[in-house]
Amino acid sequence: MKNKIIASMLAAGLCLSLAACGQKTVNQTVSPESQQSAAESRQPVTSEPQQPSAPESKDKRTITDLGGNEVEIPAVPEIQRVVVISPPVMSFAVQTIPDTEMITGINSRAFTTSNVEIVNKVFPNWQSVDTSFIDASFAVNTESLLSLDPDIIFYYGNVQKQGLGNIDIPSVDFFSKGLNGPEAVSVAWDNQLREIFGLDTSGSLQEEWDRTNGKISQLLQNQNQEKTALCIFSNAAGSITVSGTDSFDAYAQSFFDMAGIQNAAADIEGTAEVSMEQIYQWNPDMIIVFHDAPAQKILDNSIEGQDWSLLKAWKDKAVYDVPRTTYSWITPCADSPVLPLWLVSKAYPDLISDSELKTEISEYYQRNYDITLTDDDINSILGYRKASGS
């Protein structure tokens, strides 16, 4: 499916600056009159006298979300309509939610750094989900949001919470000040969703991380060198931002550490703009690209005002776009446990071959989504930006 969403860039909370990708979405705007009419049409028709409203469910639960807030949420069977404000949370929601039809509203940014070929498989109704209730600055149209009649809302941090206003709908925060590393963040998100939807811990994301960590430990026993890498967080309008040490917006450091790679920008905290001269000094063995100008433009050396040809990574053609599925793997997403294996395959190809990596991805999707990926699917994951021209 070739449809894409056009979205502007923003670096608020975890919702990282995203590259604009054209994509058609189907949005619905519901007027108060239509909402009232729809609500009335859902009332049961009976010849018996109308009984008083039933008391609120005694099965409501109080949870402590990752932001430390105590939130009263509905009983599991009563959660039927979900709104997702935070783009990366979509990746986890579609894996844990009983039925993706329950997602009635979502931030369109959830699709701007995803791979629509894979989204089609795990979130088949994504095009019909309303995205019109929220704008690029995370400001929510309250009337549009209420028309979606959500039972619960997922957001990330105070900025997104403020955008919700004072609506009386259970809202769960996915931001925790104490969590920075991608493993800790992704596991916490997975666990929070499992608690909300009443799922047990079998098949949890922690099990996948344990599997990856064990595999990586075995692979790196045969490592006899340490390469350096640089993560280009964004590259637009002549401004290059790189990822340094872990923070709410930079996770490359942890991923590099897992894969036995040294982060060339380790002296930078979080993300920061740097000059080409600084990159020349680092001269990394490998460059990975999150979004904006794709790796191919660097390899073509076609970005105005930037000469990448002086770098070792350019000479070795070791410049790669980060793989994408339901989100970019370089940020916490449901498929992040596979990224360290991909990094090893690029930095140390003698330790894990491309065919072995493809097998790892295929088995991961079989275990976690009960989906059999085709060769074309896997190729789209590993080369989506090049194939799509995004």
Rank of each mutant, 00 (worst) to 15 (best):
N3V: 13
N3L: 14
L10T: 15
L10N: 15
A11H: 12
P32S: 12
E33A: 15
V45N: 12
T46D: 08
A54F: 05
S57K: 08
K58C: 00
D59Y: 08
K60N: 15
T64Q: 15
V71A: 03
S91D: 07
I97Y: 04
P98R: 09
D99F: 04
I103M: 03
N125H: 14
D149R: 07
Q160W: 09
F174T: 15
V185N: 06
S186F: 03
A188D: 12
L193M: 12
T201L: 03
T201K: 10
E226T: 15
T228K: 01
S234Q: 09
S243F: 04
T245P: 01
S247W: 01
A259L: 09
I261K: 03
T271M: 01
S275V: 07
P284G: 10
M286A: 06
I288H: 09
L299F: 11
S302E: 04
S309R: 05
K312D: 14
A313I: 00
D316M: 07
T326D: 07
I330A: 06
C333H: 05
A334F: 08
L343P: 02
S345Q: 05
D350K: 13
D350T: 11
E360R: 10
Y364E: 07
Y365W: 10
N368Q: 11
D370I: 05
I371M: 10
T372Y: 03
T372D: 15
T372G: 05
D377C: 07
